[in-house]
Design a protein around this nucleic acid. Sequence first.
DNA 1: CCGTCACAGCTTTTT
DNA 2: GCTGTGACGG
Length: 824
Amino acid sequence: MSTSGGMGDDDLDGWDLPAPQGPKAHEPAPPRPATGGIAQRAMAAVRPAPVAVDYLAGLNPEQREAVETLDGPVLVLAGAGTGKTRVLTTRIAHILATRRAFPSQILAVTFTNKAAREMKQRISALVGESVEGMPWLGTFHSIGVKILRRHAELVGLRPDFSILDTDDQIRLIKQLIEAEGLDAKRWPARQFASLMDGWKNRGLTPEQVSEGEGRSFGNGKGRKLYQDYQERLTVLNAADFGDLLLLTIRLFREHPEVLKGFQDRFRFMLVDEYQDTNIAQYLWLRLLAQGNKNICCVGDDDQSIYGWRGAEVDNILRFDHDFPGAKVIRLERNYRSTAHILAAASHLIAKNEGRLGKTLFTDHDDPEAERVSVANVWDSEEEARTIGDEIEDLQRHGHALNDIAILVRASFQMREFEDRFITLGLNYRVIGGPRFYERMEIRDALAYFRATIQTSDDLAFERIVNTPKRGLGDASLKQVHALARAQNIPLMQAASLLVETEELRAKPRNTLKNLLADFARWRAQIETMRHTDLAEIILDESGYTEMWRNDRSADAPGRLENLKELIRSMDEFESMAGFLEHISLVMDRDSGDGSDDAVSIMTLHSAKGLEFDTVFLPGWEEGLFPHQRALDESGKAGLEEERRLAYVGITRGKKRVRIRFTANRRVHGMWQTSIPSRFLDELPEEHVEVAEQSSSYGGYGSSGMGPYGASRFDTRDPFAGGNSYSTPGWQRAQRSRENGGGGFSEGGGSFGRKGASRGGPKTIEGELVAKSVTETASAYSVGERIFHLKFGYGRVASIDGNKLTIEFEKAGRKKVLDSFVEAV
DNA sequence: CCGTCACAGCTTTTT
DNA sequence: GCTGTGACGG
């Protein structure tokens, strides 16, 4: 294969070095010079390897050393923002450029598919189109599957073995627990799944599980269950995620000739995020690396935040012991953050013991740079509101929302921000949200709803056109597609044209006709019927529910449950369109093209590897961050991992890091006075600015002021706010006040959730809204034409206090607060 | 087979 | 306080 030769001088000369920092979700691929055609690339392959290697030019000495030290084990300790990904990708480019190996002889492992994808992109940016020739760049698991499929018989599986998802796994375990005559309630399958997961993470087969641990579950039957489980899997011709590694290890151990083959194949091995490897992964790597020993691991012990799922920081701490003669290279020059941010992060992480120890430094010397800001707010609602205001302020100053992120410790913290941002009309995206919406049956159901509401939703229509099976197969669909493409119209429209012709055979034609009629009927009921009822009708009349009811597989009941849950969750919304819009906001994180400008909301965990100009870190309170459970369950180690999490959070910021903590937070539904996070005191005074928020209520700990204290009211009044007079939100509020409406209700939003179920201080807001309703009637009148920032133009259909029902020209009928519309 | 009631749990998450 | 799950009864 000649792909390695595809990188000629031409490809390298014009390569514009990407910013030397970690991957960023929405970072565009670095510009790649136009490459010649196939002939030119083939010619380049014949030319001598490029000598004056331009791709090394922008590297600092340490990075360069990490790239060029190809022989023997290398550990690259890459602090946050020191160009880790760049080193990895350049190293691969270097191996290829110097002809040390073909692309197919390089093993490069990452933890996530996302990371693998990004690495592929960056490498192809470096070397041209030849990345298709890197079949062994992927996650531990995907590479494990690849190896196992080739040699499945040797570990008792057929090559077409299936991979169990967590759901299947749990269901299977439950059966086994019951088969053992154990009380399924006392011994939850879920718990056993995580126990077994832990064993698999440590590379333990059933025989290797220690007596005590084996006995810790199911009246001493833990090990037996593990054994049964594995036997069942073999019978089922299936493997779970852990097996993808464990079975590969077993394959290597029991069949040295197979191992030898892979050792010879992989001339160079690269491992990303080495601090996150567990023992199984370490064993897997070590077996392979015993061949030519050219293994390069890149990681940062200070960013090890996955101890709870089996990651062994020890792997990185012991690297030179495990791989004798290893060269350790430290990358300490940070290209990402300001000196203040770096100092804050370094000072904090220095409190941890047992680090390999790195000292990050930077040349950034901007006297204007903002210090790390720390501010106290009353509660999480105010936290969301003030951060929303600050974001609007940044936006007004020309900052892109894409460059702003809110990083939370726990995902329940996200909701408040979402609610607030919906109210503000501030575009946001949630990264790493619930998996619920990714489930097949949920996606199917949503596809039905989408196709009902939006005739042009091709993807939705395509998804369900033959689900359940209606006999609308490839042949018929092809015709619909052809017509749609030819006339440049949506699929449904094309389909309705098509059924009037003789193009299709009678049977599929009628089926399609009926389906289209169904959609038309459902569509006609949108206005008149409760959306939850309609949703149920759609799923029933389409035969979708039936399909699952007739399905005898183990997970069919679960899917029906999920569908019910979906309808139940719709009830929170005022319309199907509102619901779908919400879903798409929640869903689009992954599928989203990233082209929209939006604030990112995510957990600290999923923020690793990303970077943003401005980072908000809310919720720095004892119990939440550091999380109580981490402290309870893992003690000092837990605290240190939490501290690393804080370090990760701070080092995501390039220019601005703003830490927030509340004085009160609802914990398990109960209002509690928060204690500021100990991490706050571990920040260096001289690099921190304790922000004087206009919304000061007297400071944390001021006595005698419950959540309903009078001062709270003041702080909540945006018109008293000192620093937000020109924010878009303030202006909208201002307009609405002129119009006589209550300016800042939470519950209404545009189409958002009903606020009724909220307790606590929310009530105050409820009262406030109520007051404004009774005191001032809406300034609008029926039939008046208005403009809404999110939904565009429309006419007032009816008025209920400060709530208007608007017939929007584009978005349809929606209930909105009069605060958010203006007369035109 | 479905609906209702009571009860437990309630961090982070990829594959 | 809320939500998901499991048992039980109609």
